[in-house]
């Protein structure tokens, strides 16, 4: 079961399979916050210098997959936004995190990305 999926509403997995990114956003924002956490994926920024490149292949592959999903969800939700619209970035990242890392959530992998692309047309 996905975190945040109300019993009377489509699960995140169902919405994802249908390519309903707007539905994912609504479900993500319509949760009982006294009972459920808000998953987030946060970037890392070192204001003192540069963070060394990640040599771990799995870490890079997962980040690449997240970046791809970020672009797909951005195209579906915030094509109107300025690049530096912080609220828009947060909204997309919330949907990404809600969909792809809550307990039992869809793994971030290519077949899912393809399914989203197909369903979002």
């Amino acid at each position: 079961m996905l975190t945040g999926a109300h019993e009377d509403k489509p699960s995140a997995a169902r919405l994802l399979a249908d390519g309903d990114i707007v539905g994912l956003m609504r479900t993500c924002h319509d949760r009982r916050l006294e009972r459920e956490g808000i998953p987030m994926v946060l970037g890392l920024a070192d204001e003192r210098g540069v963070i060394p490149s990640a040599p771990d292949r799995a870490q890079l592959e997962e980040g690449g997959a997240f970046a791809e999903v970020f672009d797909r969800y951005s195209a579906a939700l915030i094509p109107w936004a300025r690049d530096d619209d912080e609220g828009a970035v947060i909204t997309v990242m919330q949907v990404l995190a809600y969909t792809h890392f809550a307990p039992g959530a869809a793994l971030i992998e290519e077949p899912i990305a393809e399914r989203i692309e197909g369903g979002a047309q």
Binding site: P39, M40, V41, L42, G43, L44, A45, I51, S53, A54, D56, Q59, L60, E62, G63, G64, F66, A67, F70, D71, S74, I78, A81, D83, D84, D85, E86, A88, V89, I90, V92, M93, A97, F101
Partner: peptide
């Protein structure tokens, strides 16, 4: 914060749940 920054952080593997 920006979409460009977020995308690059993810691509570099620099993120935390």
């Amino acid at each position: 914060p920006s979409s460009t920054v977020q995308r690059e952080q993810l691509r570099r593997g620099h993120f935390m749940r």
